[in-house]
């Protein structure tokens, strides 16, 4: 077992202390664990199944059913393209295309360097600023293809700056 996996198990066990062994707690537990680990690794799911005394497949069934849960580690920066109705009408799908093109990944994936993960979200309620992309939890207004490039450039510059400072 890798060090990371051991760590995941320990973190999961710590979270489980707040909960009773009730099936109804499954979703709140998964939410807590993902909030801590960023995703739901296999070993964490197995620990949770053992704790609740339910087959592991039941945990897996819940995790793969809901949009909120992810099985893969997230990227450093999260890109969430809003595809609510208002955003869609103002070109949310065009923005999504632009992100896919630039990051060279599909929605639901993480870039190989684990810098970005791309996903869609069904309305964040900022319909007046459509099309919206939520970048690292902050909704960005009017994200059109040129702004996609702008946002990526600003990350690039930040990274450059950081690496220079480290030298």
């Amino acid at each position: 077992m890798t060090k990371e996996q051991v760590n995941h198990i320990q973190e999961t066990r710590r979270i489980l202390k707040q909960f009773s062994r009730k099936r109804g707690n499954l979703i709140p537990i998964l939410q807590e664990v993902q909030g801590k680990l960023g995703y739901l690794p296999r070993e964490a799911m197995l620990v949770i199944a053992g704790f609740l005394g339910i087959p592991a497949i039941d945990v897996y069934g819940v995790v793969t059913f809901y949009n909120q849960f992810r099985l893969n580690p997230p990227g450093k920066h999260s890109i969430r393209v809003c595809l609510g109705t208002a955003c869609h009408m103002k070109g949310g799908y065009i923005a999504l295309d632009a992100w896919k093109r630039r990051l060279d990944i599909d929605s639901g994936e993480t870039t190989p360097d684990r810098e970005f993960d791309l996903d869609t979200v069904a309305c964040v309620g900022c319909c007046t600023m459509a099309p919206v992309t939520v970048v690292d939890d902050k909704p960005q207004a009017q994200v059109e293809p040129t702004k996609v490039d702008g946002i990526l450039l600003s990350f690039e510059l930040e990274k450059e700056k950081a690496s220079k400072e480290n030298l």
């Binding site: 009730k22 099936r23 109804g24 707690n25 499954l26 979703i27 709140p28 998964l30 939410q31 609740l52 039941d58 069934g61 819940v62 059913f65 809901y66 949009n67 909120q68 849960f69 069904a122």
Partner: peptide, 25 residues
């Protein structure tokens, strides 16, 4: 308070209930 995990179908009352019970909605 129960936090829904992102499934539109859980707006349907019977699936909302199965969701609170800890199952797929």
């Amino acid at each position: 308070l129960f936090q829904g995990s992102g499934a539109f179908v859980c707006g349907e009352e019977t699936s909302l209930i199965t969701s609170i019970e800890g199952n797929p909605g």
